[in-house]
Structure formats: structure tokens, C-alpha cells
Amino acid sequence: MTGISVAFGGVAALSDVSITVEPGQVHGLIGPNGAGKTTLFNVACGLVRPDAGRITWRDQELRRLRPSRLSKLGISRTLQGVGLFAGLTVLENVMVGAHRHAKAGFFSALLALPTADKDDRLLRERATAALVELDAEAYAGRYPGSLPYPVQKRVALARALVADPDLLLLDEPASGLAEDEMHELGELIRALSSRMSVLLVEHHMDLVMKVCDRITVLDSGKQIAAGTPAEVQADPAVTEAYLGDAVDVEADAAELAGTDGGRSND
């Protein structure tokens, strides 16, 4: 993504931000609250259309990127919070994520023709495999509402991974996790980078510093630093942005509640 700018009613949420996620790398996106991290994420998903700038994916410019095209492009994202479908079992939630791998057409699937039947079985197998990978297969038949939050987060991650994406967008995967769970998550993200690129938005600095190959720092919609974790940590502009801003817990909570996957938590 190059030169991305977004304005909401005259307020510049992002101005001229460029970010490139290299294949097989984990790219961190950090910044104080309100820096525009989530907006940039939403641009990358097609939820927000940039006022200026280009999005390029595999050497092709994506114009009019729409959320529904993401999975076909090989991009998966997780949401802040979990955004699981409340009325579907864990396994079914993950199966929805594997949707793009189904081969049978819409109408043969509707009429349950034999090819579609085979498809359904494959889908189920893929979803089960993804749950096994994240150590959540024991919960396959349960409904998300009845599971502890960290398990829900693992299921949400499994749902993103089952599509076998080339680029995984992780929106605050560590929020609500305990110390040791965060450690496991870090190792998982490192392991994933051998199969896909990862763009990670995260508040927990130690996690970001540990798992990222490169980091982009945003502050008030502007890119203030980019580089390896060591370079970014040494950058005085970054220290200033973080120390100059007291952490605003309430705004953080409001942001979390506001972007929590539409109706899914009803």
C-alpha cells in the first residue's frame, strides 16, 4: 500500500501512509490509540475506501477492493474481539472460513449434488484440521458463547487460517490473553510466517518486538517510523509519540466495543 490517505469528514485519519508486507515476513503495525492502525487495516480489507493512494497485491493494483473479494485474493483477517457466529458451532464457524476452497457451484451445492456432497466433507476435514492445529478440536461441537475468551480467540484464528491465506491480517490477536497464552501466540505467529505473510496490529509491545520482522509506527495518521524492531525502538520519534501520550484506557475500550464484528455478538 502506498500513499494511503483517508479523511473522515475533514479529519485526516491517515495521511500518505505506505506499508509493504514482504512475503514470509511478519509486519507489525503499532502506534498510540487513534493513530489510524485500525483504519489502515480496514483500508486493506476494503471496508474503508482510501481518498488517495494505491493498494497493490502480488504486483496488481487493487481498485475497488471489496470485503467479499478478500478471501478469493488469498487474504484473511481476524477481528478485534472475536466476531464468531454465535449460533454456529465452533466447527461450523471454521467451515465458513474455508468457504473459498469449495469447488462445487452455488446451485449444485444447493441441490446437494454428489460433487457438492464431497465438497462438504472436504470442508469439514479442513476445518477439523485447522482446529487441531490450534489445539481447539475438543470444542468443535460447542457454541462460541459457552467458551472462555482465549479459546474463542483461538477459534477465530483457526477460522482465518483455514482459508490457507497468503496474507493474514491480525487485528489485536493478544487482547484479553494472559501472559503465557500470549507467549504461545507469539510462537504460533512465527511458525505461520513460513507459510504466509502476516500483518499484525497489536498493543502489546513485547509481543510485537519479539515476533515482527519489520515494524511501521503510526501517530495521528502519519507514519513516523519504519524498520526492524531494533531500529524502531531506537527511534526518538517513537519514544516521544508513546511517552508524550498518556494511555487512554476508555478510548481503547470504546474502540474495541465499536468495531466488534457487526451483529455477531448479539
Partner: peptide
């Protein structure tokens, strides 16, 4: 049977529970 055992039924239920999320996952 449609809702429980087919992929289209699954996608329909997913759409019903969270349109935006379903869309992000590639459901039409």
C-alpha cells in the same frame, strides 16, 4: 437438511448471524 448439512445452508446461517464477518470470509 439444507441448513444443517449443506455448505449453502452454512453460509446462509453465517450471513444471518453476522453479515460483515461473513462477507470478510468470502461468503456472498
Amino acid at each position: 437438511a439444507l441448513f444443517r448439512f449443506t455448505r449453502v445452508g452454512l453460509a446462509m446461517r453465517a450471513s444471518a448471524f453476522g453479515q460483515e464477518v461473513a462477507r470478510l470470509l468470502g461468503v456472498r
